[in-house]
């Protein structure tokens, strides 16, 4: 009899604790759900804030980085003297490696017609260092810019680059608009 009572009491405590825990879980769940959104979020670089510090190349958990240079052709001046393609001080405007700015020679220069050249990024080679972006921003039109490529990005819970980005340029944006492409950006803003 006494034994039974003891068991009952134990059961009772267990049950009480279970209900309390269950209730607090439900509480947390509901409270959090009011702050939650059904939308998926992904990390992206705001090219207008990025200062090309180089950490996108060094700090991504992926190697090579999931950040790549993207070319907004809409903004490009198609310059012969591309500030993003040639090293500062390159005196010969030729495609020789010694004249190129990109450390991995990931930019292809294609002649279109006098005097215009097209510049194409080879994402297989690009490591997202942002050197060309800096050059293009300083001496050109700023058509080159860095973006997190979502086919490569793991969408880490906390982006390892965002943590160290000195310009606070990386934030989470809705996956339905997963890029901030410089040229397209105004288009979507205006339309």
């Amino acid at each position: 009899m006494a034994e039974n009572k003891k068991l009952d009491r134990r059961d009772f405590i267990q049950k009480g604790a279970r209900i309390t825990l269950g209730a607090s879980l439900a509480g947390i769940g509901i409270a959090a759900a009011t702050k939650a959104s059904a939308e998926k979020y992904v990390w992206q670089i705001d090219p207008f804030k990025c200062t090309q510090c180089g950490r996108c190349a060094t700090d991504c958990v992926k190697n090579p980085s999931a950040v790549k240079c993207v070319h907004a052709y809409d903004l490009c001046g198609y310059c012969d003297l591309c500030g993003g393609y040639f090293k500062p001080g390159a005196n010969k405007l030729e495609t020789g490696a010694e004249n190129q700015l990109c450390p991995t020679a990931a930019i292809e220069r294609r002649f279109i017609e006098e005097p215009y050249f097209e510049f194409i990024i080879d994402e297989e080679l690009c490591i997202g260092c942002g050197k060309c972006v800096k050059g293009c921003g300083a001496f050109g039109n700023g058509s080159l810019h860095l973006q997190i490529r979502h086919d490569l990005c793991d969408n880490c819970n906390e982006c390892a680059i965002a943590r160290v980005c000195p310009s606070d340029a990386i934030s989470r944006i809705p996956a339905s608009q997963a890029y901030i492409i410089k040229g397209n950006f105004t288009e979507t803003q205006e339309s």
Binding site: V42, Y73, D74, L75, Y78, E113, A178, Y179
Partner: peptide, 22 residues
């Protein structure tokens, strides 16, 4: 961005940057 790009005479078509979906 409103600065217009060159008018090409050789029929060059300007590519758009790709945006692989997450």
């Amino acid at each position: 961005q409103r600065f217009p790009k060159p008018e090409f005479e050789s029929g060059y078509e300007q590519p758009t940057p790709t945006t692989p979906e997450p």
